[in-house]
């Protein structure tokens, strides 16, 4: 349900904020600038990747669950220094944004996405599709995700999920 808004301008402004944030976010992940990735989140942000199947049934355990920005930093450190995986890149295609609510300085929004994964030998696959269920904190100098729930349409992950979605 769209939020009560005094006029249409407010909603389009909110959509603009979310769209801009998602565009920057996708450019960061797809451009392999992962050191910048944690900075898209507030200090106490909750980032979770799960599936529609688990989400619909309220099953708590999904594929990644991070409770604050430090856990996101640790994930990038692990990706860069510890985990072993073949070179690969993502291309996010994000749908138009739907603002689903607003509360104080928080905007709640939903967007569909697809990620094409390209391996170093040139092979490409539709890696995942799903939706972002985001709460965006607009109180700071720049908007940040206070919560980002990544809900995947399919239960299946091909090989591994190293780079965040």
């Amino acid at each position: 349900m769209p939020p009560e808004a005094p006029d249409g301008v407010l909603i389009s402004a909110q959509i603009g904020v979310v769209t801009g944030l998602l565009a920057d976010y996708a450019a960061c992940v797809d451009g392999d600038e992962l050191e910048r990735w944690p900075d898209f989140f507030t200090e106490q942000a909750h980032y979770r990747i799960t599936t529609e199947f688990n989400h619909a049934r309220g099953l708590p355990i999904g594929i990644i669950d991070a409770r604050n920005r430090n856990m996101l930093k640790d994930r990038i450190t692990a990706l860069r220094k510890a985990n072993i995986y073949e070179p690969q890149r993502y291309r996010h295609i994000i749908s138009v944004v739907r603002v689903t609510g607003a509360e104080g300085s928080l905007i709640m929004a939903e967007a569909g996405f697809m990620v094409v994964r390209t391996m170093i030998d040139g092979s490409q696959d539709l890696f995942v599709s799903g939706r972002y269920l985001d709460s965006i904190d607009t109180s700071g100098a720049r908007p940040r995700f206070a919560k980002k729930l990544v809900v995947l349409d399919s239960d299946k992950i091909d090989t591994l999920l190293a780079i965040p979605l």
């Binding site: 799960t50 599936t51 199947f53 688990n54 099953l59 708590p60 355990i61 999904g62 594929i63 239960d155 299946k156 992950i157 091909d158 090989t159 591994l160």
Partner: peptide, 11 residues
């Protein structure tokens, strides 16, 4: 009790 599912496809 089940806490969550996922499937990993291996090539």
């Amino acid at each position: 009790k089940v806490l969550g599912y996922y499937t990993q496809t291996l090539r």
